[in-house]
C-alpha cells in the first residue's frame, strides 16, 4: 500500500518536471522560462521527496526527506528572485509580446 502511494507521488513529480522542462525549451524569453521552470521543477522535486517520505515512513530517511522540502522551497524561490533581478540589470530584453514594463523607471 505504502509502496503504491510512493510510486504514484514520484510519478506525479516526474510528470511536473517534464512540464517544466518543456517550458524551459519552448517559451520565448528568459523571464518566462524562469517562471515555468522554477515553479514546475520545484514542486515536482518536492513531490518526489514526499514520495520518499511515504516509502520509508517515520525514521531516519523519512525525516531527512522532510527537512529537504522546506530547504528546497526557500532556496529555489530566492535563487529565482536573484536571477530575475540580475538579468534585468544585465540588460536582457523582454519578448516582443510584452505589454507593460513598470520596472524601467525604477532602475534609472
Amino acid at each position: 500500500m505504502n509502496d503504491m502511494a510512493a510510486i504514484i507521488l514520484i510519478s506525479v513529480g516526474v510528470l511536473f518536471n517534464i512540464f517544466g522542462c518543456i517550458g524551459l525549451i519552448r517559451l520565448p524569453d528568459m523571464y518566462n522560462r524562469l517562471q515555468a521552470a522554477t515553479k514546475c521543477v520545484t514542486l515536482g522535486c518536492c513531490s518526489i521527496l514526499l514520495g520518499v517520505l511515504v516509502h520509508f515512513g517515520i525514521g531516519s530517511a523519512g525525516f531527512r526527506a522532510l527537512v529537504a522540502i522546506p530547504i528546497l522551497f526557500f532556496t529555489a524561490t530566492v535563487a529565482a528572485h536573484a536571477l530575475a533581478r540580475g538579468a534585468y540589470h544585465f540588460g536582457t530584453k523582454m519578448d516582443k509580446r510584452s505589454v507593460k514594463d513598470d520596472y524601467r523607471e525604477a532602475v534609472k
Binding site: 512540464f19 517559451l27 517562471q35 515553479k39 514542486l43 523582454m94 509580446r97 514594463d101 513598470d102 520596472y103
Partner: peptide, 25 residues
Amino acid sequence: CIKANFDVAYRVLHPAMPIKPGIVK
C-alpha cells in the same frame, strides 16, 4: 502551488502559447 503547476502546463502545452507578459508594480 498545485494550481500554478496546472496553469503553467496549460500555457506550455497549448500550441499557440497564450502569453502576454509584463512587469507590474
